[in-house]
């Protein structure tokens, strides 16, 4: 039975993705964490801080894009942990001694992470609607939202695959997930950046999360987008390419050790 390399690459990626999918439902802790944490943050902001924050719209409408990004970012960062687990355990070694492209292992984690994220973000959207979120987006806007979120998730997924390949222990990989929990706070996710001190304002305005959130917000509730959409695609498109190349390079270097 000889089939093309391309066929086997797809087949292996598919097999590994199937494994990651099984993991999502057999280890529901990480799915629950990926959903529970952002929901808690959302509820906290809407009901506790939201009343005091002046955003020009209903606060729940303002905050949803930020919560979605926090959710997706955190969800992606969990990939680092599972990649490290495979490296520390023997699976990675065994795959490398077999006649297949071991990079299918990475493909599996990226796809699995994407599906987990898709589930988590859907749940968050639903919870948001339950607590009063009323988006004005039409079909085209929703397609845009899905496209942008997919770009965001895939670029982060590959970034965290790279991080998972570098880290030597599961604990370190765990620590690598924390920045993703905090980065959205220093953006326009929860409060308008103008309310921050000047130096922080400058950082918040120019970090990649802000144009992404502004674009999502514009698509969801019709606030002006300006050139944020292009900035977002530029930022996360580059991140996707860089992370992907980085992962492949680190992966190949592992072989020579």
């Amino acid at each position: 039975m000889r089939k093309s390399k391309f066929y086997w690459a797809l087949s292996d990626g598919w097999t590994m993705s199937g494994r990651s999918l099984k993991h999502i439902f057999r280890e529901p802790e990480s799915l629950l964490m990926a959903i529970g944490l952002p929901v808690a943050i959302m509820v906290m902001f809407v009901y506790i801080f939201g009343g005091a924050i002046e955003t020009g719209t209903e606060y729940v409408n303002y905050v949803v894009p930020g919560v979605i990004i926090t959710c997706a970012g955190f969800g992606s960062s969990l990939i680092a942990i599972s990649v490290t687990q495979d490296m520390v355990g023997g699976l990675f070694e065994r795959l490398r001694s077999m006649p297949l492209l071991p990079s299918s292992l990475m493909v599996g984690h990226v796809t699995g992470g994407f599906i987990r994220n898709a589930i988590a973000t859907t749940v968050i959207f639903l919870v948001a609607i339950l607590i009063g979120f009323r988006p004005s987006a039409g079909l085209l806007e929703w397609l845009g939202i899905i496209g942008l979120l997919a770009l965001f998730m895939f670029s982060l997924n590959w970034l965290f695959v790279a991080i998972g390949l570098i880290t030597k222990s599961v604990e370190t990989a765990n620590a690598a997930t924390f920045p993703m929990l905090f980065l959205p706070y220093v953006s326009s996710a929860f409060v308008p950046t103008e309310t921050m001190p000047t130096w922080l304002h400058a950082f918040a305005d120019n970090q990649p999360m802000t144009p992404l959130i502004e674009t999502l917000r514009g698509l969801l509730i019709g606030t002006p987008i300006g050139n944020n959409a292009w900035l977002t695609i530029l930022w996360f498109g580059s991140l996707l390419i860089i992370s992907f190349i980085l992962s492949v390079v680190i992966f190949k270097r592992k072989k020579k050790e």
């Binding site: 086997w8 087949s11 097999t15 494994r19 099984k22 355990g89 023997g90 699976l91 065994r94 077999m98």
Partner: peptide, 29 residues
């Protein structure tokens, strides 16, 4: 021509024994 069984069992804990074999069988093409 070879197979390697390392010092640490490289089995997937969340899958069943059968699923582990089927998965690795597929990866063995």
């Amino acid at each position: 021509k070879i197979s390697l069984t390392g010092q640490y069992a490289s089995v997937d804990e969340l899958l069943t024994g059968e699923e582990n074999l089927v998965m690795m069988g597929r990866l063995n093409h």
